[in-house]
Write a protein that binds this DNA or RNA. Structure first.
Lengths: 248, 248
DNA sequence: GTTCGCATGGCACTCAGTGCACTCCTAGGG
DNA sequence: CCCTAGGAGTGCACTGAGTGCCATGCGAAC
């Protein structure tokens, strides 16, 4: 159980001290690096906190100073991302389409994943096979979903069944986002993540939202006529409308 | 720390021994009863496993024979309910409307809650204020959602974007169900739970499903004509279709 | 230099969860 | 009637996460 050589985590970084908010404390990064190295080498459950702090060359107590639990070290940036999303939603004006707004908020999360593809893929493989981490990830995702739902509840305050619609749409947005994100992660971060998630979110917008893609250049006909076979499923009808409007 | 009097948990029950599958082991029920008594008295985190087993009058090791973790004692019947749901989905035939089927599956869960209103309400209050239990509940709900999504994925195998639609619809169904369930739980289990959840699921069916309410008596017109103002939001158009079809 | 604040480290403790071995108690077979 | 096999329950010791408390050390301010 050797100690990580000092060069691996630059204590001589431009950030000289741990300043919460301004820059990342180097010790925090060192702990994340040491933890992931061990998690990938021997697995999450086979790695103890003592192993991590020994490799990082810091005291055991310091680990819990930066991460409230062992699971948290696997999701080191979600707290900040959640704050970003909350701020993004709070900054919106009331003349925006609510569903479009929450879809854009979801894209913030995707961007965070896409910023570090290799890290994201490693974490994905880890969470996929460790039940405890999967459970923890659920609680993280749940907080994003709640942020979206709270925003929609405010926007839908006047609607009948506003809270119901808010909860359902938030869940649908998160599910679509996660579907696209996972598909991207399974491909080892190759390909364009944003295109995948755009496609997934367009489906949700087509089911719930206002205008999914503002026509911009080409205006749809002033009058839309849809002829539907009796008993055709509603999604088929919606699909028909979309293609008629030139959004297919 | 007295011991629970023997009369509180009928050891003289008709089930004389612990027979997995046939009847509930009385010891399991005794542990649940003792646990909830203490959780309500002094809180979840303030209650240790030792407290529970002492009150139940059994050995500490026996607790973990029945419940793999402390959280599990709070959700003693979800494992069976999940099995029921899986069986229900597997028993369906392929000529049924898939969305309707998963909505019916969700109603199974509601029925389980509605069978023991007081227990469900107590548990709700507990999970609402204990973060650890909330997280655990998320993992339970996630398994329901996965069961629904897997079913829909099979049914949508031929569709383009089938897995996306399956994931999104499953999430929407679960969110609608939970919205209704929580509203019912907040009312202390008064009122008709099934009516609330029916209303919530109808919203999801109207957004995704085939015929939300089979017309039965009155058939919709064979040809549907919708005239829409330019730039009207899609949900407004859908609303129009719905009212035209007589589903409003 | 002294002092204050802060990041860190060390120590001891609680408690959840596990592996193992032991004791009953019961069923069944000779 | 005895002997045995298996399963339910139990006691014990151990690991490891997470916490509270206090000491230490270091840089900044005074």
């Amino acid at each position: 159980m050797r100690t990580l050589p000092g060069a691996t985590f630059p204590l001589m970084s431009s950030e000289k001290a741990a300043e919460p908010g301004t820059g990342k404390p180097p010790m925090r990064d060192a702990l994340v690096a040491a933890a992931f190295q061990l998690f990938l080498e021997r697995g999450y459950e086979q790695t103890t906190i003592d192993d991590i702090v020994t490799l990082a060359g810091v005291g055991r107590r310091s680990f819990f100073r930066y991460f409230p639990s062992k699971e948290d070290v696997v999701f080191p940036d979600h707290e900040r991302c959640l704050a970003d999303m909350t701020a993004f939603l709070a900054a919106g004006t009331d003349d925006e389409e609510p569903v479009r707004r929450v879809c854009d908020a979801a894209r913030l999360v995707l961007r965070m994943y896409a910023e570090n593809p290799t890290f994201s893929v490693q974490r994905y493989r880890l969470t996929k096979q460790v039940p405890g981490l999967r459970a923890y990830e659920l609680s993280v995702v749940w907080r994003y979903e709640r942020a979206l739902a709270e925003y929609l509840r405010r926007r839908f305050a006047a609607r009948r069944d506003g809270t119901l619609q808010a909860d359902v749409i938030a869940a649908a947005v998160v599910a679509a986002h996660n579907n696209a994100l996972r598909s991207w992660l399974r491909s080892d971060g190759r390909g364009e993540a944003s295109a995948t998630v755009d496609h997934a979110l367009a489906y949700v917008q087509s089911a719930f939202g206002g205008t999914p893609v503002p026509p911009a250049g080409e205006q749809p006909e002033d009058v839309v006529v849809v002829v539907s076979r009796r008993d055709a499923p509603l999604w088929r009808v919606v699909q028909e409308i979309e293609s008629t409007l030139g959004r297919g």
